[in-house]
Design a protein around this nucleic acid. Structure first.
Lengths: 331, 331
DNA sequence: TGAAATTCATGAAACGTTTCATGATCAATA
DNA sequence: TATTGATCATGAAACGTTTCATGAATTTCA
């Protein structure tokens, strides 16, 4: 099964159809072309089995119709969801996705940005952890959840509002002693505002609260220790918990159950992200839902927008609260 | 902040360094070049801030160093895992991933293959559902879990062996009445061998079994009905279940618990895929583990292998059994 | 009817790289 | 010293597309 020496090109189509090369290009790109010419060209394309070659256009126009997405991985369900929606939004606009995993390696974050630039992607969407990230200047660049400067557009959920919504919701549910728990770097990034919003609302409502924050890499056992320390004679110090992410919330709930506490009867637990639990959790799961679809839409439309200078530098999208299937908007 | 009219190119570097264009190319590609030339070129690259442009090479060499991965989505944790490992394997070999989601749309599967070819990817790895998929001829093509013909390499876990391992394991655990449950198309594909291996082993061991298979799109309630039908006066007809996928197994376990059955005390349940449960499940989870890493490695090395004709047409990789952290090889 | 305006195909140049045949330089051998 | 061989930089062509200035053919309007 011998391959043709070389695949047919636009020039071959033009020759076969008896028209000029430029005419073939215009037919293929759906531009204004006389009817009889269009037919001749299409017939020739069929006869030769011509296949369009994007490499030529990429070189000539310096556009690849490809956007790079730089993200730690797809193992975390929230990232997987993000990848999915961003890909769908790109597809809608007839763009491709070059997917790059950082594995939380801050050096690799920079390398991947370089690589994407060499590959002449039309833009980069990045969810990174390097506070000294090298922001590229020659290619549209949008971050998720990381604010660098006014000139680098950042798309994020309303983390502050979400934290505050969680606090208000716990209060409404009758909680009298609450706590916030999270793990993650102390980078100044958008998600850290979950705590701020929570704390602000607690203060405003006069709701007593505690904060338990661990640095990246700290062992989960410290959370267990924290929880057990607040268990005195079968009485738990908190009747409401707000947890930084759903994944962590699920783990915490496991610990609570091992401690003999019922969720939500004894302790209300609210997570963050809005990860659906694959129908696998048998306890009531509450969460502050990130508007992933809208985040994806904002990332894509921002990175593709022609006039990046006119774009807001922080796009903040409203979250909602989900409990047993009911949701309501934040603020 | 005005961008340079045009970014520096190899020609600019050559002029700046006072050498020939070809020399710059050879320096950049690490080929044999005299020491003083190499230094001059590197200095010029620094001075000009030259950035390599892959589009030129793609056109000239017809190689993009990019592989397309066509897969339904990343929402399903097994797919997410696959995407992750394939990306890592590509990264090792200095290749990029163009990620395409089919959303189980069989037409889109074909369209994406076309698109990938237009983008001149160096190869395609596909996990598809269209039995009449149009297999491209001009580009290396590897499938996951789908056998089309001897000329289309297919990478899959040892599904038959896995099914048979599950049956033997249930027997060893003392089960006397078992059932297999699955949902999915009846396409002749590799995963359907899970049932065959299970049935064959049951027959061989004289272990009574039933099979409950649903077509794609069937409502989950039918599984519930099936399970409840086999519950008579608080006595369940099965003491062991083998479920086609972990995700389904998790859902089934929820139903069993609602029916008042304990897992694994009353019913042993074995899933398939080896999805870790995010530390979120509070019941004993058993599963036949797909060797995802090895599958990814096989896909990538096959699709990149120069002599695709010499490659085996079905690469079948051994699975293992996982229960509470212990694993053992199949067969 | 004639001039002006409009439509639309043509032909060639350009994008940035790789690669190949050519030729220059220098060392080694006779 | 003269010749051969080896090394390695040079210059130009080629990859397949888009785009732009040119000009031919047709339509419009006075």
């Amino acid at each position: 099964m011998m391959k043709d020496k070389t695949a047919p090109t636009m020039a071959d189509v033009a020759r076969e159809a008896g028209v000029a090369l430029g005419t073939v290009s215009r037919v293929i790109n759906g531009q204004q072309v006389g009817e009889e010419f269009r037919e001749k060209v299409n017939a020739a394309i069929q006869r030769l089995g011509y296949k369009y070659n994007s490499s030529g256009r990429a070189l000539r126009t310096d556009r690849t119709n490809t956007i790079a997405l730089i993200i730690p991985n797809t193992i975390n369900p929230y990232f997987a969801l993000l990848v999915h929606h961003i890909n769908m939004e790109l597809e809608k606009r007839n763009r491709r996705m070059l997917l790059c995993f950082t594995e939380y390696d801050t050096n690799r974050e920079n390398e991947l940005i370089q690589m994407a630039q060499q590959n002449r992607v039309d833009g980069i969407i990045a969810l990174t952890y390097n506070p000294d990230l090298t922001i590229p200047e020659d290619v549209p660049f949008v971050t998720i959840d990381r604010f660098f400067s006014a000139s680098v557009p950042c798309v994020a959920a309303d983390n502050f509002g979400g934290g505050s919504l969680a606090a208000r919701r716990l209060k409404e549910l009758g909680c009298a002693n609450v706590a916030f728990m999270r793990i993650g770097s102390t980078l100044v990034n958008e998600p850290s505002k979950r705590k701020e919003g929570f704390v602000a609302a607690c203060v405003e409502m006069g709701l007593p609260f505690e904060v338990m924050a661990l640095e990246d890499g700290a062992p989960f056992e410290e959370f267990e220790r924290f929880l057990k320390e607040h268990m005195k004679n079968g009485k738990f110090a908190f009747d409401g918990l707000f947890i930084g992410t759903d994944m962590l919330a699920w783990q915490i709930i496991q610990v609570l159950k091992k401690m003999g506490l019922r969720v939500p009867e004894d302790v209300q637990v609210i997570g963050f992200d809005g990860i659906r639990s694959f129908g696998v959790l048998d306890y009531a799961v509450s969460t502050i839902v990130q508007p992933v679809q809208e985040i994806a839409e904002a990332c894509v439309s921002t990175v593709l927008s022609k006039h990046l200078s006119n774009v807001p530098s922080l796009i903040c999208l409203p979250v909602s609260y989900a409990f047993g299937g009911t949701t309501r908007e934040s603020t």
